[in-house]
């Protein structure tokens, strides 16, 4: 018998009587999801910026020190940012090393925890971009906020998705004496523009 079959046989032999599969509970509903989202995103070390219009993004980007001094910028949001890296020209994700700023569109944000859903399709030809870049900028429409992860998973379709990630703030670690340090392996900063 193959390992697969012997494992499955053992599991069938040893499994208890079937118990029911419950539905997830209804989640908390926030009176002001944008406010809650901003608090959560800030609490995880992210920088939250609320903007009324898309046109406000570029001037606001210049206020980010890392962006103002950046040599290599890649924007995956049409019409936003001084993009000077041709992502389609990269043969290999390793060529992303040295990228200073990446600007990426988030599909929606989750108020309860400040997470932003980024599907693989928003990451361009090399999905490594969101974690290899030194600094990350996320752009999320203010209309696209959900209260909790329950609503988040109602929205996500995994069929044909391949890859997707919730990003909540910059990369961080507290592995040395529980001291929080921002910028472990991935982005050293994560700025979020909530637009509209």
């Amino acid at each position: 018998m193959s390992s697969r079959d012997s494992i499955l046989a053992a599991l069938r032999r040893n499994a208890p009587a079937t118990s029911p599969l419950p539905e997830p509970p209804a989640g908390i509903v926030y009176p002001d999801p944008a406010k809650q989202f901003a608090e959560a995103f800030t609490s995880v070390g992210g920088k939250f910026v609320r903007l009324a219009r898309r046109e406000d993004i570029d001037p606001e980007l210049e206020k980010i020190e890392a962006y103002a001094h950046a040599r290599k910028i890649a924007s995956l949001v049409a019409g936003i940012g001084r993009s000077n890296v041709d992502l389609n020209g990269l043969k290999d994700p390793h060529e992303l090393e040295g990228l200073d700023v990446a600007i990426i569109a988030g599909e929606f944000g989750v108020a309860e925890n400040g997470a932003v859903w980024v599907p693989g399709s928003a990451l361009g030809p090399q999905r490594a971009i969101f974690v290899v870049t030194q600094h990350l900028v996320l752009v999320v429409p203010a209309s696209e906020l959900v209260h909790t992860m329950h609503q988040a998973y109602e929205r996500i379709r995994f069929q044909g998705l391949g890859f997707g990630v919730f990003i909540s703030g910059p990369s961080k670690t507290a592995d040395i004496e529980q001291a929080l340090v921002i910028g472990a392996h991935g982005a050293r900063s994560c700025t979020l523009f909530l637009v509209g």
Partner: peptide, 28 residues
């Protein structure tokens, strides 16, 4: 997939007292 919501709401809060981990990556 909707079960993920239940567990992800619990995991990081229980583990380190964060609302969620910085990266929650879905491989399909």
């Amino acid at each position: 997939s909707k079960d993920l919501a239940v567990f992800l709401r619990l995991l990081a809060r229980s583990a380190t007292g964060q609302p969620v981990t910085s990266y929650t990556t879905h491989f399909h």
